[in-house]
Design a protein around this nucleic acid. Structure first.
Lengths: 477, 477
DNA sequence: AGGAACACGTGATAC
DNA sequence: TGTATCACGTGTTCC
């Protein structure tokens, strides 16, 4: 009955009518397990804010969200709300059609605000920064956008965003159907808002989600724009679609763009697969993909999906006439299935192993082995690197208190830390290069949590401008 | 003729007689390709120095070296000399036997010093910090130790240290033979120094090599000691020896300890393997390991290494009587080899995939797939994390020059940077918690390149001591 | 040819 | 007794 997000069934029903069943379940699970509070709020990067603004402003995009990678103390990582930008789509009215603010829409509006208020409170927001107070009425786009703020995508659970990030593949869904599919648990809200296009652009430190109420076909320029605005130095290379045996794998949807994902590929469950579903992690068209190399299926007769020139060279296919006993026939069938399963695993392996040298099975295994070992060393190196920089940072932070001697009314604390890594190291080095050998500075803390270093250096008249240029050049901004 | 390390053949010969052929080649290759200068010198950590000292001092160990992971700008990583500790083994004399300093040993000594001098010069050391000046005579242990300083182990080349680090497995060689094997290109020097035990202990940020002129059997306590002294918080879990089908894999040498490595497992090359050698990466006893699941070999009759109760149940093994044509006979043989190769790959895959759920081939492939995807996401996350911290650090370094206004004789430069990540952030926070809201500090630079923050805060009498404790506690040291 | 790679049916084996 | 997996020889296809 009573949950965290609701206190009785009536409230639950109300929330469900606004958010949809799946979103409510999702958020309720989050709230119950305190998932969101595990992750540190990345603290809005101004660059991200500006970049998202540029994407949404003056374009057909309705909103843009930057999901950032965040790591919890528990070691789990997730994509959490980093920043966002949203606008009301042109030509749409806030309260549905025609602007007739009737009784019902007012009631709906009140419900939305109540739900948002509830969410805000449950996820640990204080009352005064509640954005709903400022909103006169809440549109469906607002509802979607504001609800998304409480979302997060842990990497240990499969989801479209995490998958896009992991594979570093852009996902572009430009028709209502596949678009809503990708929205997954947010699809109810997305449907209400009328989104027709959804794009996930993976970046180095997270990904950008952009959506539109219009249908926008895939455009590499927009992807590049997103990357250049938010991706640092667009270091995420745009991988070409993986091909296997020369054939493109993404046969699922129209265009070459969106990768349609079916999370529980229950196809041909009858064939006796165990519950593990490798054959197809995010690669459209399971039937074709999962089939054996010369496309025929064991059970059903709907086979021969490969372009094999119908009924030409049937070889010795087709079940044997079951000669004599039926015991060995079953055996043959079982063996067939075993082989097929193995082959499917081989295909799945081919899909995940990069740099496949030859299409040979043995070579594939060899490549897989080198791949694994390479990845392992890469991880070890990255971790070592991380630890080293951590140590350095700790060294920076590990400050020796040299002196703390008491005098009648005040205390002097001397703290020394290495120059290397100190925020003003660049300034000091630049000053030193300018023959200013003993730069001293006062340090004070501003009210907005910044440290202010004030250097006072002696310069010859006219030299100051040059010094300033040098400093700017030395600091690289 | 003329190289970087020598100017003529005579010099080359002299160096070779001191260093040995392989070490000379190794170092010459380094010097020629400027490998060492690529990597940043990690800058001696005092903790490491002390730890190594504690290991060597008062024990049977002759020396200890900390090899640290270092990353070049090119992206290549290597284990480079981090720090070291060395002592003259007890009971040994510096100049070989009996202390009779004859003409020859004096000459040898001169040669050693000349070689060290040469190495020192070639690897970019200045003349004044040349340690050979301080040494009266150079023992073989010294020679080994000082030469090792110019070593490095890039991860793209196979070597015992890099392999130990990668697999995070301790390597312990306690007999002269395997010991010298592990020394690889340093074996000539190691032999001269008389080392009988060599141990590599992998850590998070590198590894520790310890050696002794005595034969020391494997001792988990020493490994733990090394880890606790140098491994941060011994986060490198000591993996148990991998088992396959319940049998231990390390059959190579005596005891359960050392992993004997043969870098080009040329065994059964005759069987028609291609040059790729997966079947055995650092897992002793290639013959047993590489064989098919019920140990028989295709070509040679030296088979049946598995405990299979000799000549019991030969099944239908043994080549068929070659009935009729000999063509298909060749075919079956080829097929046999293909199968065997595939099986070997499967075995090799089993060796590198962690968390093997079932011994099934299909399950193995499934595990391999999840393994690869998991590793890939792990890498993506680590890299994202790295980038985020890099961004943060850059933000710390990216300082806005707020003001630089010129006055008659001096210039005021105001630099602001975020409090978060600032070295004195901890101090300031601690002070704030003590209701000292506006801590100001002078900053000056000491002559040894450190930044000195001097805080002057008002305290009530007797409060200073408490404040000091709080600060120490807040800074965690 | 003639090797390489694969799928297939079959017998054996372990639980 | 069925239900797995596995290895083997064979037929076939593609260079």
């Amino acid at each position: 009955m009573a949950g965290i997000l609701w206190s009785n069934d009536k409230e639950k029903g109300l929330m469900e009518s606004v958010l949809g069943r799946e979103a409510l379940d999702f958020l309720h699970w989050f709230a119950s397990n305190n998932v969101l509070s595990e992750f540190v709020a990345p603290g809005g990067d101004l660059g991200a804010q500006q970049g998202l603004f540029k994407i949404v402003e003056g374009s057909d995009w309705t909103y843009a969200i930057y999901w950032q990678v965040s790591k919890a103390k528990s070691g789990k990582s997730a994509l959490v709300w980093g920043d966002g930008q949203c606008k009301e789509p042109k030509g749409s009215d806030v309260n549905g059609d025609n602007g007739s603010v009737n009784q019902m829409s007012v009631g709906v509006n009140q419900m939305k605000k109540w739900v948002l208020h509830r969410l805000h409170a449950c996820f640990g927001g204080s009352d005064d920064d509640n954005v709903t107070h400022k909103l006169d009425s809440v549109s469906d786009v607002d509802m979607f956008y504001l609800t998304s703020m409480y979302y997060a995508y842990p990497f240990d659970k499969p989801s479209t965003p995490s998958q896009s990030f992991n594979s570093s593949r852009t996902i572009w869904a430009s028709d209502t159907k596949s678009c809503l599919e990708q929205y997954q648990s947010r699809s109810f809200l997305a449907k209400a808002a009328g989104f027709q296009t959804l794009v996930f652009v993976p970046l180095k430190t997270g990904l950008v989600e952009i959506g539109s109420v219009k249908s926008i076909t895939e455009d590499q320029h927009i992807i590049q724009l997103v990357r250049s605005l938010l991706g640092g130095v667009h270091a995420v290379q745009s991988k070409v679609a993986p091909k296997i045996f020369g054939r493109e794998l993404s046969l699922g949807a129209a265009k070459s763009g969106p990768i349609s994902i079916s999370f529980a590929p229950k196809v041909e469950d009858a064939a006796g697969f165990t519950s593990d579903s490798f054959e197809l992690q995010g690669l459209g068209a399971s039937q074709v993909y999962g089939s054996s190399s010369n496309g025929y299926h064991s059970d059903d007769g709907e086979a021969r999906l490969f372009p094999q020139a119908d009924d030409q060279k049937p070889r010795k296919r087709g079940r044997k006439p079951a000669n004599g006993r039926e015991e060995p026939m079953n055996h043959v069938e079982a063996e067939r299935q075993r082989r097929e399963k193995l082959n499917q695993r081989f295909y799945a392996l081919r899909a995940v192993v990069p740099n496949i040298s030859k299409m040979d099975k043995a070579s594939l295994l060899a490549d897989a082995i080198t791949c694994i070992t390479d990845l392992q060393t890469k991880i070890r190196l990255l971790e070592a690197e991380k630890d080293i920089t951590c140590d350095n940072q700790n060294n920076h932070a590990s400050i020796d208190i040299i002196e703390s001697r008491e005098r009648p009314e005040d205390t002097v604390i001397q703290v020394s830390c290495p120059l290397e890594g100190h925020p003003v190291a660049g300034v000091i080095k630049a000053l030193r290069e300018h023959q200013i050998m003993e730069p001293k500075s006062d340090v004070s803390i501003t009210e907005n949590g910044e440290v202010l270093h004030t250097f006072s250096v002696q310069t010859k008249p006219g030299e100051a401008e040059e010094l300033k240029d040098k400093l700017v050049a030395a600091l690289g901004n």
